[in-house]
Nucleic acid binder design. Structure first.
Lengths: 343, 343
DNA sequence: AAATAGCAGATTAACGATAATATATACATA
DNA sequence: TATGTATATATTATCGTTAATCTGCTATTT
């Protein structure tokens, strides 16, 4: 084995054709006679040839690679979607490059920079905060992209997300119908569109049941502070007689239920807990929480679809896909009982 | 804004230097006068220049990118490590490319192929089965690589893993010391070195307590069959009077505890459960299971270290790092009580 | 038989960067 | 003054591939 990689030139000399003919044979150009094409392909295989994508991309301008820019690899919600995207993209002949901001959206521009530098054909972007600048950076560089999961204020662009408003409405309607009158809304990071929509839908639903915004206490905190906030649930709840707890995402619900259980409360006897994502549907070992399911796999596949479409047709008008949601009852909600400490 | 990307040539014409000088300035070559370098850098920034990595890699032969080949993105154990690796690599000036086999190791060769095609400088490889062929493929192509988490029979190469034998020993010693006499060992996929080592260590420990292999029932199953297998725990356990359950990884333990609880058993009163990974240490919302902690973050950082070292010094002798393990008691083990159904 | 079209394949010129080499100037040395 | 040395920059070749263009040759048309 030589120390350097086999190139098309090597194949060309080995089989007596020109480099160009080898290139076309290996790309499956049908304008070559079948016999020639097959012979070259066979020799290439025998020589262990591996195409140099750098050269190919440099010359052709197409990398057949898509970057996915994501916030956090610890988050199962994201990981599940990444897995699906990887599959969809591979099926379409694309590679996926994962770029992770490690919860620090300031790195977002750097990630986009890397993606452009690597000549990706497009970007699947999961916005975190409600931040325009990264969008503008992609636009400035003529990079096709699709926003996933959330929307950004005043940005009209390709976007795939779930019907968060409807999700919030379903949660509110569910709890109100059970008879709950006061609520704790444990939200995630401020200013994300998901949070605004879910809360909005929730309020709309309870208003329809004769309740008002005054009956909801919204607690929000940065990811890192979540645990701390939750430690105070007991304090927040008891004097105000909340019985319904709405969590912005399942992980918050897990922690909330844990905190409640640790304090001797029983779910759903003392508190009803409802959440979003329904992670346990996809990942069997996770705790089961009544949750609004938002078809993550569709966000992934449709996102890929939209992006590939955008790459092929840069001048199409922006397309927005809003996916339906439904509620999965896993038994963590019930009619309100009396709120009290056990034992 | 022009429709095409800004190149070094554009910068060169804009500032009156040659392309070569621009290239050196942007790479921070100190043999250029400070004034020139800074001026060029500033102009480049103002023009929104983004280096074309394809061209750079093609010419220089270095991509400053490392591929991580992993099995499954749904697995938190992997995701946690990916996150760390991403961090370590970025700090060292490298990018990370994640390639996922989707639990199908047959795709492994294809992943390596992709990595080589993308001119990565090295590969961090998580072996799944005990399979030599992929290793040989990397060697044949002179690709620096480090095996992570597991070792492969008869393969001597850079390798970072935890002391699985000691881990198994700790688990066995812990349960035997509590007084357990019969065990169920719920293993993951067959033939992985982790499983062999953990089981080996476990057996060694219980032998030291006067017990034997006959006291252990090993149940193994492919990932996909895990759920099914676990549904039979009740059947397997009761007639044979097992009280100690060792799970190959935390997710199996979660499912096992769930299955036991569903059947009316109480952990640890009826069964002691011990496991490996201690995921709940890193991911707070996960169920707490007494578990052998294997310093995942060190596997990640040391793996990166070894690989970068190997890239820099291809002729060093192979290096193996075995990381220490310790037990975290989360209260799912206790002295054996009577095994019986509740209610 | 001349003109045309189609085919198989070769030749040449990029893509955008970096490495190797060359040049021109300024200054120091003998 | 001639020579050497360092500095600052330019010129040229090259990485491996693909795109555009070109050359023969054979077969078909008129």
């Amino acid at each position: 084995m030589p120390a350097t990689r086999v190139t098309m030139k090597d194949i060309a000399t080995a089989c007596g054709y020109s480099v160009n003919t080898v290139s076309r044979a290996l790309r499956g150009d049908t304008r070559l006679p079948d016999s020639t094409r097959k012979r070259i392909q066979q020799i290439a295989r025998k020589m262990g040839y591996i195409r140099n994508s750098m050269a190919s991309t440099l010359r052709s301008g197409k990398s057949h690679t898509v970057a996915v820019i994501v916030n956090d690899l610890h988050n199962l919600h994201f990981c599940n979607m990444l897995s699906r995207m990887d599959q969809s993209l591979r099926e379409a002949g694309y590679s996926m490059m994962i770029l992770c901001m490690q919860l620090n959206e300031a790195l977002g521009e750097q990630m986009i920079h890397t993606a452009i530098s690597q000549s990706v054909d497009g970007i699947l972007y999961f916005p975190y905060h409600n931040n325009r600048s990264h969008i503008e950076y992609m636009e400035k560089n003529h990079m096709p992209f699709v926003l996933l999961d959330r929307w950004i204020q005043n940005v009209v662009t390709d976007n795939v997300r779930c019907d968060d408003h409807m999700g919030g409405w379903l949660a509110g309607d569910h709890l109100a119908q059970l008879g709950h009158k006061r609520f704790l809304f444990l939200s995630g990071v401020n200013q994300s569109s998901s949070q605004i929509d879910r809360l909005g839908g929730f309020l709309e639903a309870i208003r329809a049941h004769g309740l008002s915004e005054a009956d909801v206490r919204v607690v929000s905190g940065e990811e890192v502070e979540r645990a701390l906030e939750l430690m105070e649930i007991g304090k927040l709840l008891y004097p105000l007689d909340y019985t319904g707890i709405v969590c912005f995402r399942d992980e918050i619900a897990y922690s909330a239920i844990q905190a409640l259980t640790d304090r001797g409360y029983v779910v759903p006897r003392d508190f009803s807990v409802i959440s979003f994502d329904h992670l346990c549907g996809e990942t069997p070992y996770l705790p089961r929480v009544t949750s609004i399911y938002s078809a993550n796999e569709d966000v992934a596949t449709q996102g890929v679809q939209l992006l590939l479409n955008r790459i092929a047709h840069p001048d199409l008008p922006p397309q927005v896909v809003i996916l339906p949601v439904r509620i999965f009852d896993e038994g963590t909600t019930a009619q309100p009982g009396q709120v009290r400490k056990k034992g």
